[in-house]
Structures are given as structure tokens and as C-alpha cells.
Simulated assay, not measured.
Amino acid sequence: MNASSQESVFVSTAKVFMTAYYVAKNNKPFTDFESLIDLQHAHSAVLGRVLHSKTVCVDIIEHVSSKMKKELLKKIIETKSKITVLADESTSVGHKSTLIVFLKDYVDGDMELIAFPLDLVELDSMSAAHIKEQIMGCLLKNGFTV
């Protein structure tokens, strides 16, 4: 594959990624992704022949969000920023208790507070000691220290 061909593939893939980003950023259903790709094709945009399904959209969003989360956590840990940990209990489809762990932080001293889901933790017990243990394990697993 020559350099101009590689550049063309990169540009078309970037357009597909930007479309997936639009879907995620605007809280659109994943099914909109395929319609947006079709719309761009109708307006002569070159988006290649692959990466056009809603399944691919989900994969792209998961990939990008996991990278963004890693970078955000890295920055929070490096700056030793103070964090707020929020937890919300829910029940899974299998009737197992789960805990959604959220973090809140001012990253880079920005005035805007960032809140994001850190992890989903299954609970074997609803005791305070077990919940504390699971939250601490979740934080440790994500790079924080005691």
C-alpha cells in the first residue's frame, strides 16, 4: 500500500470515528450511526467500505472511552487531586446487587467538575464493611493507592 493510499484509508477511518464520537457525545442511539454513514455517502463523503455497522460504533466508542478514562485517571493520580467517590446500588438482570462507582474531580484546576463512572462492582453482601472493601478494591484496581 503506497503512502497516498494509506493516507486515504486513515482519513476515511477518521471520519467514521468522528461519526461514532458524534453519536456518543450527543447521546444518540447506536442505530443512528448507520443512518449518519448513509447520509455522508449520499453527500459524496468517502468513508471506505467497512466499519459501518452499529456494532462497530459500539466498539469504537468503548475503545475511545477506555483510552479517555485511562488518561483522566492518570492525570488525577499524577496531580494527587482530591476526589469524591459516589456509589449507587443497583440490581443486575440476574438479581445480583451491584455498585456503580463514580468519581468526581476538578481536573487541571478547571472550574468545571468532571463526574464519570469508574467501574461496576458486584456485591456478595450488603454490609457496610463489604461495600467499603469493594470500593477500596475498585480504586486500587484503577491505580489509586491507600
Rank of each mutant, 00 (worst) to 15 (best):
S53Y: 04
M126K: 14
G109R: 09
K82Y: 03
T79V: 15
L39Q: 06
E89F: 14
L113I: 14
A24S: 11
A45P: 07
M1C: 05
P29N: 04
F10M: 10
E71W: 13
V56W: 03
T55F: 05
N2T: 03
K82I: 09
K141P: 03
L123E: 00
V146W: 11
L123A: 07
E7R: 15
E122C: 06
M1V: 10
K132G: 02
D32C: 08
S35H: 12
K69R: 15
L51N: 11
V121F: 02
S125V: 07
D124Q: 12
T91C: 03
H52S: 15
P117A: 08
S92R: 03
T31P: 05
S127N: 11
F17C: 07
V64M: 08
V56C: 09
V107R: 11
K15E: 13
D108V: 04
T98Q: 14
V58N: 10
K82M: 05
E7F: 14
L103I: 08
E34H: 06
E62F: 06
C138F: 01
H52G: 11
K74T: 05
K25V: 13
S35V: 13
K54T: 14
E133M: 01
S125R: 10
L86T: 06
A14C: 12
E89C: 14
S4V: 07
H63V: 01
Q6M: 07
D88M: 08
K80I: 10
R49K: 14
F102G: 06
K74I: 00
M136F: 09
E112F: 11
S4Q: 10
Y21T: 08
V121W: 01
D105Q: 14
S92I: 01
S65T: 15
M1K: 03
A45V: 06
T79H: 13
T84N: 04
L36T: 06
E34A: 05
I76R: 02
S5Y: 10
S90I: 01
L86D: 07
E78W: 04
A14D: 09
A42Y: 12
V11Y: 10
T31I: 06
F144R: 00
V11D: 07
S65F: 06
I37D: 02
D108G: 06
E71A: 14
I135E: 01
K75N: 12
G137M: 04
G48E: 05
E112T: 10
K25P: 02
D105N: 09
M111T: 15
Q134S: 06
L73R: 02
V107P: 09
K54L: 05
S5H: 11
V93H: 06
V16S: 00
S66N: 04
Q40K: 08
D108K: 07
T79W: 11
I135P: 10
T91H: 01
